[in-house]
Every structure is written in C-alpha cells, then in structure tokens.
C-alpha cells in the first residue's frame, strides 16, 4: 500500500497526472476514489474488497473525468483487460492515461463486506484467473496472494442448466429475467457499454421494449449478451450492481465459454489482439448450418 501511495503522490506532485483514480475506505467499505492532491494519495487503498472495475470511469462519455485531463488509474489484472478493450475500440488513447497495475490474488464479491478472502468468499471470476499482474500497466506495485484455482460455481451452474431440458432452462431464465426492472445499472457500470445511444434507448425502431415486462426484458438481455460477446472482460460488475440479483454472470460466462471453445479466444489485456466478433476464419466451425 505504501508503494501505491508513494507512486500516486509522486505522479501528482510531479504533475504527471492531475488525478489518480483508485479506491479508498468509505463509511461502509471500499469505494472508488478520485485523488487530486499529493496529500490525498494517503487515502488510497488496495485489498481484496477493491472489486470495482474503474475502467468504466475512463469512458469518454464521462465528462467529469475528461475535464481533469491526464489521469492515472489503479487497475487489477482484470481491469487491465477492460482498459485494453477501450483502447482496442479507440475509446481512450493509451498515452492519455497512466496505468498503475496492482498485483492481485483475488477479490471478494461485495466491497462492503468484512469477510476475509477465502475459498468460500472469493469472487467467482477470480477462480482460475491466471493473471497476478496486468501486462498493460506503466507501473506495477504490491504483492499478490497465490490466487484461487477453480472450480467456478458459475461453470457448475451452466453445466447443470445444460443438462436440464430446454423447458427447465426457459423456466429458470424467465423466473430470473422477470425480476429485471430495466434500471440499466448493468449497462451503466459496464466498461464496455459506452454507446452514446444504447440500442435499448432507441425508439425508431424499437427493437427492445423499454418497460419492464418479460418480452422487453428478454430482448434486452439477448441484445446485451450479443453486444458483449467476445468483448466482456468478466469483471462481474453487471451482476454486482443488479438490484434484483439476476445472475447476469451466468450469461456472460456462458458466452465467454462459447467464444473460447469455438474461436479459441480469451479476453486479453493486449489491445492488439482482435476481438473474436468482427473477425473470422474461413474454416470457422459451422456444424449448426445446413
């Protein structure tokens, strides 16, 4: 932590950046923080409660950050994948942001929890996460725990659903999706959902009915899954912020599995690696096509 704070202080006092985006201790737990003065750097923390993917603050659609000019951002290996995605999709110029990588051995799911990081509490995406540090960072600080091996609970659930008949899956998802109140928090928090005008808000034509009913909800979640296919970095933010507790991570995980099995693709923190949707191979599998 001292290493992180010292680096942040130096970047701010030397004027390299005007703000550092990281985490601080809030009244209820860890929370995102903007530090704009060298002294403020002492409030920065990093531990297993720093679950938020701060990359979504870098989106050009967030003008308050833009006004600050050059900023530094503290990022976990998984956040690095999101930043790489934003660079890949020309949303942020690499030279406009200083990236401070923190070594990470896993986080828990709830930033407000006082639970320690254990096999039982670790976030599902951290199970089997191979990266202890991100490769994109300009500076890398801290030390990391050993990380957690699988098995992913979501993968188990996906297998269980796959084994059930289609009607069971339909029933399961209907019971989940009917809870959706279409607050679009899952979209707002997602680092890769940065469209100026989301398809869900379009009225001419209206592909996705906007009121919270089963039909519109279905269309919304299909659209979101398709738009994020091969782009989702599995930061888990959408599921975390959903006020209705809909297991969105099952959908994102399922699609990630499909993309990895079919196209041998895993979200990368290298902006030069192309996303699997928008590219193709002539010999892509096509067993489902007559």
């Amino acid at each position: 932590m001292t290493e992180l704070r010292e680096l942040a202080r130096r970047l701010l006092s030397e004027g390299t950046v005007n703000a550092v985006l990281g985490w601080e201790e809030g009244p209820r737990g860890a929370r995102p923080a903007f530090v704009t003065t060298p002294e403020g750097a002492d409030t920065l923390i990093f531990d297993h409660r720093c679950v938020h993917n701060l990359a979504s603050y870098l989106s050009p659609r967030r003008p308050h950050l833009k006004r600050l000019g050059k900023v530094a951002m503290v990022l976990k290996p998984c956040d690095a994948r999101a930043v790489a995605g934003l660079i890949r999709e020309t949303q942020i110029p690499r030279d406009k942001v200083v990236l401070i990588g923190v070594r990470c051995g896993g986080v828990i799911t709830d930033p407000d929890s006082t639970a320690p990081l254990t096999e039982a509490t670790v976030a599902d995406r951290c199970r089997g996460c191979p990266d202890r540090e991100g490769h994109l960072a300009d500076h890398t600080v801290g030390t990391a725990g050993p990380g957690f091996a699988g098995p992913s609970k979501r993968a188990q659930k996906i297998e269980e659903l796959a084994a059930a008949p289609a009607e069971k899956r339909w029933a399961f998802w209907q019971s989940e999706l009917e809870k959706c109140v279409r607050c679009h928090a899952c979209r707002q928090v997602c680092p890769m959902c940065y469209c100026d005008r989301c398809l869900a808000d379009k009225t001419q034509p209206r592909w996705i009915e906007s009121s919270p009913h089963a039909r519109g909800n279905m269309a919304w979640h299909v659209a979101r899954a398709m738009h994020l296919a091969g782009r989702c970095v599995d930061c888990g933010e959408c599921e975390r912020v959903c006020p209705e507790g809909i297991p969105l991570g099952l959908i994102t995980r399922k699609i990630a599995q499909v993309v990895s099995e079919r196209y041998d693709f895993r979200p990368s923190d290298d902006p030069a690696v192309p996303a699997p949707v928008g590219t193709y191979r002539m010999d892509d599998p096509q067993e489902f096509i007559l």
């Binding site: 899956r169 979640h221 299909v222 899954a225 398709m226 399922k254 699609i255």
Partner: peptide
C-alpha cells in the same frame, strides 16, 4: 456465421 453461432448457443442457454 460467428454472430449466429453465438446467438444460437445463447438462445439454447436461455431455453429456446
């Protein structure tokens, strides 16, 4: 082909 390979799996997962 890529788009619909993924879409088909998604629909299957959602129980269609």
């Amino acid at each position: 082909r890529r788009r619909f390979a993924i879409f088909r799996e998604l629909m299957d997962f959602l129980g269609v």
